[in-house]
Design a protein around this nucleic acid. Structure first.
Lengths: 185, 185
DNA sequence: TTTATAAGTTATCAACTGATAACATCCGCC
DNA sequence: GGCGGATGTTATCAGTTGATAACTTATAAA
């Protein structure tokens, strides 16, 4: 047999696969990302990937669930939370990754259903609890709409002719809109 | 040969194909919509479809370009325009169709590039001209972000546990946000 | 009436996809 | 020390996809 590149370590392999999947799904989309490509990037084979995660959809769910977390956000005071949410979504690609995965996968019926469920569990619900009140869930959804819209047109779709000055203005508008939702009135 | 269902009429066939494509792309997505399925729904064959539109991507571009138009909107006074934009996006499925097609197709590199180009030409630019001023384009993009976000979570992704009362509250917020962009200050 | 061409069909290809079966090998436990 | 399960690999399948070639038939102009 061909000498294995990595030492035998199932946990490490699982982690490598999960990481490769997150990157791939967020950049190439769902149906255009083959399990062979993910496995290759993780330095293993598609068969092993399937053994660990059951199916491509299972891997997608695991990858999305792992990437999506608002724990650090809901530990901050409201104003700081809003600022941080807007800033991380603007600057760090990793923060926008779950949103990108959702947007990318929303075209595939199977993946879209998974995305909706995971997003509700891991983002909407905790954020609604954090915002509190009778309209907590509605406001969490408003944040989700803003976030998807912003990520969609800044990171996801390569809009031709989007100048830097416009990006700055959009950033300012987005931050203001998030603040208005978090701290209404 | 089998008796043709329709009389020979190239224009009619083209139109049937375009219509079927718009419906299919907006509901099933891009990669999950086969040209065979579109052709069948149009009562013809995939070969004819390809002869008329060159390729699947070509058909997608034609369908999107045909569906996407803001002519009626930019003929209204601002306040009415905002109200109409929000209302049609809320109520009529046909109005949200271009947005759905964009959201669905954004996961496929090829289709996403087409969508970005067509959307810029047919929506962003005319809307920017309509809004006018130095920040016209930025405000047009803000509207686009709001629209995509709203459509995404109300029509596109089937979020489990989204009650009617919440939908109403979201509609109100969305309408208000659109108005704030169109008529700032 | 003849004929060129547009309109439409059937058959088929080559590539890729997710998934499965069968096989090889390393490592911990008794 | 050897045995069994976990870890990993290769080969292969069956289905689907977009696209093309080759073939028919209706229609409109000369």
């Amino acid at each position: 047999m061909q000498a294995p590149v990595h030492k035998r370590d199932a946990n490490a392999a699982r982690a490598r696969i999960l990481n490769a999947a997150q990157r791939a799904f967020a950049t190439t989309g769902y149906s255009h990302t083959g399990i062979r490509a993910i496995a290759a990037e993780a330095g293993t084979s598609s068969t092993l990937l399937l053994r660990y995660y059951g199916s491509k959809a299972g891997l997608f769910e695991a990858a999305l669930r792992d990437a999506m977390a608002v724990d650090n956000l809901v530990a901050m005071p409201p104003e700081e939370m809003a600022q941080t949410l807007a800033r991380t979504l603007r600057e760090e690609d990793n923060s926008a990754r779950p949103m990108l995965m959702m947007a990318m996968a929303s075209g595939e019926p199977e993946a879209a259903q998974i995305a909706a469920r995971v997003f509700t569990e891991r983002s909407i619900t905790p954020m609604a609890d954090y915002l509190g009140g009778a309209d907590g869930q509605v406001r969490a959804l408003e944040l989700a709409m803003l976030a998807i819209g912003y990520v969609f047109f800044t990171k996801h779709l390569p809009l031709p002719g989007l100048a830097a000055a416009q990006t700055e203005a959009l950033d300012a508008w987005f931050t203001r809109a998030v603040l208005d939702v978090v701290r209404p009135g």
